[in-house]
């Protein structure tokens, strides 16, 4: 009995260790000085210097990327949620033909490889003059996150007790009123879950951002991190610092809301 527990603890430790170690190493790198980063062989300890954070903010305009990421991911989350709530309500509650087809095609959209729509989406944005604009990136993101939002919310809406809605309708609320007065508040945890997942998606997306945001003023964090350039070799310290900044909000989300994320991901069993 004792032994099996020990083994179990060991495995757990290894899993946690392997999950965190690479990233901890990277965070550690961001706290080194230039000499420590380029030491051969590598030095384990960092001197806790904030030099790279300063230089990414001052020289590489890190906050600018953060701002763009917040705008794009924030707007995507709001718009996607709004549309998803409407659609999910329909799919969960109202009578409609071809619901299966609609759900199925949404699922299909969520599996589209980016490359198979990238060219045309780029062309559409070009003809609208929306390359290098926030809406130019937000719109594809909304499209790609809608399936995720709708799937999660439909699941949550279905589980809500119908009685409250019926009561509200007897009180004289129409459908729309019932939706935002009763369903939305009740499903708040579900909506929050969907919000987290959509936000993470939009925060992390790279492919479309690479094609559409070529102007530095509008580039998001992943683009900034991928395209960091340096003088002689890659500025690993700065990359690590920017990466840490990009990841910290997500790590916080994960630690505070891991239950929701887990339920959101497994509820649909569909990332959508």
């Amino acid at each position: 009995m004792k032994l099996s527990k020990l083994i179990f603890c060991g495995i757990t430790f290894v899993i946690v260790f392997m999950s965190l170690l690479p990233f901890v190493w990277f965070v550690n790198t961001s706290l080194k000085t230039q000499a420590e980063v380029t030491a051969i062989p590598p030095k384990l300890a960092s001197s806790g210097s904030l030099h790279f954070y300063r230089s990414t903010i001052e020289e590489h305009d890190l906050l600018h990327y953060v701002k763009n990421s917040v705008i794009v991911a924030g707007a995507t989350t709001c718009i996607t949620l709004f549309i998803s709530i409407l659609s999910a309500y329909v799919l969960a509650r109202l009578r409609l033909k071809y619901k299966g087809v609609i759900m199925g095609s949404l699922l299909l959209v969520s599996m589209f490889p980016q490359i198979s729509i990238a060219g045309p989406v780029w062309k559409i944005m070009q003809s609208l003059g929306w390359l290098n604009t926030y809406q130019g990136l937000i719109i594809p993101y909304v499209t790609l996150t809608l399936p995720l939002g709708i799937w999660i919310l439909t699941g949550f809406f279905r589980e809500l007790p119908k009685e409250l809605e019926d009561a509200a309708r007897i009180d004289g609320c129409n459908r729309i009123q019932t939706l935002y007065k009763i369903v939305v508040p009740l499903a708040a945890p579900g909506i929050f879950t969907a919000a987290i997942l959509v936000f993470i998606y939009a925060w992390n997306e790279f492919f479309f951002a690479l094609l559409i945001m070529t102007q530095r003023k509008f580039q998001t964090l992943p683009i900034g991190i991928a395209l960091f350039q340096g003088q002689y070799t890659l500025p690993w310290g700065e990359i690590a610092a920017a990466s840490t900044v990009a990841t910290v909000p997500l790590v916080l989300l994960v630690f505070f809301f891991q239950k929701r994320i887990v339920s959101g991901l497994s509820a649909g069993a569909v990332k959508g």
């Binding site: 705008i71 924030g74 989350t77 949620l81 409250l164 508040p185 708040a188 929050f192």
Partner: peptide
């Protein structure tokens, strides 16, 4: 009953409001 529902779900409007505020603020800064 309804007020209870609202109270329980304060989180949603709050989160939404925060998101919107951040968005608007960054647009203004921009």
């Amino acid at each position: 009953k309804r007020t209870v529902v609202w109270n329980n779900s304060l989180m949603f409007p709050v989160v939404f409001a925060i998101l919107l505020a951040v968005l608007v603020m960054s647009l203004i800064i921009g």
